[in-house]
Design a protein around this nucleic acid. Structure first.
Length: 116
DNA sequence: AAGGTGACTAACA
DNA sequence: ATGTTAGCCACCT
């Protein structure tokens, strides 16, 4: 069953230097159709550095590498776009992941190379 | 308890 | 080929 906890667990399992799509994570947690929920789970902790900050959904947000999770096209699709997206891209690059910036200001990752 | 929501995806027009 | 619509499923109010 795909719960936040399970999702975090899977996300934390993503190796450094690799990325996974929401759908991919969803499948791993056992809910192939729960992609949206995955992104949602991550969004709950968007604080960037990783602080529980607001008690939010009451889940413990230990260092979950949420930046390694992107959409099916390898793009960073945050609702807060530029804000969180830039941070995410930066973190990925630090891990050795090549992140491109499209003309539309959308960060993209080469899934062919970095997909988990 | 029921309804609404969302960092998605895939299929259809 | 792009743009829209529908399905999804746990979590919040």
């Amino acid at each position: 069953m795909a719960t936040f906890k399970e999702i975090y667990k899977v996300v934390k399992a993503i190796p450094k230097g690799k990325v996974a799509s929401y759908g991919q994570v969803a499948v791993m947690v056992g809910s192939p159709r729960g992609a949206q929920m995955v992104g949602w789970a991550l969004h709950d902790m968007d604080q960037s550095s990783g602080q529980t900050s607001k008690k939010s959904r009451g889940l413990t947000w230990e260092a979950v590498p949420w930046h390694r999770v992107i959409n099916a096209r390898g793009e960073i699709s945050t609702t807060c776009r530029e804000h969180s997206a830039a941070l995410q891209a930066g973190l990925l690059q630090e891990e050795g992941v090549e992140v491109k910036l499209t003309p539309e200001n959308i960060y993209k990752v080469d899934l062919e190379k970095y997909r988990w």
